[in-house]
Amino acid sequence: MRTLLLAFQGELTKAWSLRSTWWSLVLATAMSIGLSALIGLGLRDGRLSDRNTWDPVRYGYFGLTIGLIVLVVFGVMLVSGEFTSGTIRASLAAVPRRGVFLTAKVLAGTAIALVVSVVCGLGAFLATQPVLGDRGTTLGEPGVPRAVLGACLFMALMAVFAMGVAAMLRSTALCLGIMIPILFLNSQGMANLPAIRPVTQFLPDQAGLVLMQSVQQPPGSVGHTDFGWGGALLVLLAWTLAALAGGFVSIRRLDP
């Protein structure tokens, strides 16, 4: 336990001593809040597709997706940086038990990602809702706090998911090349094809959309899934745990 605690402190120190940590987290926050508010300006009077029901929380979170990309990059680089820089050799000499090392790293990364996600999720909500004017909402409305919490959890879980994937693949470029299409292009494309919708609705970004909804979307619209908020949370947890499990299996077999 003491070993894990010391390793955790080391990982926090390690994360904060890189400039890339600072700029990625600042950028994630600025993008999430700034872009959400900016897009909100365009939405306050604009029309949406007829099939979708207006949802102030979800539509107020468009910018969050961009912030999420940056937060995912942070999660990937936190882990892949060990391998690309060779630091992994020093890390494992200092913390030779692979499981303890990765646990400490993921815990440190999760703690940071969680704080940033709450700042982004809550900040974007508070900045965007007044911009939406009459179409906006408040934390007092039913379903809204849960959707805001969902947005925060979505961001944090995807950052942790990224850490697990990076522990498996160990290459920054490979990780981002795989994760960005899965996480972000899906909503615009594949997920809307009715034929494959029963499968693609389980992809992380679709579950994430459900988590940040305060209004249930009708069948056939973007954001409608066969599962609700709780189901979406389970789907995301499953993705995250699977990636972490893969990371742990991979790191145990590692000879850096």
Binding site: L6, A7, Q9, G10, E11, T13, K14, S17, L18, R19, S20, G81, S85, G86, T87, I88, R89, A90, S91, A93, A94, V95
Partner: peptide, 19 residues
Amino acid sequence: STHGGRSARQHLRWLARTN
């Protein structure tokens, strides 16, 4: 086994913390 983005002191500091 060092990350080019950290200073020598920062590298030693995180190593020290882990132990």
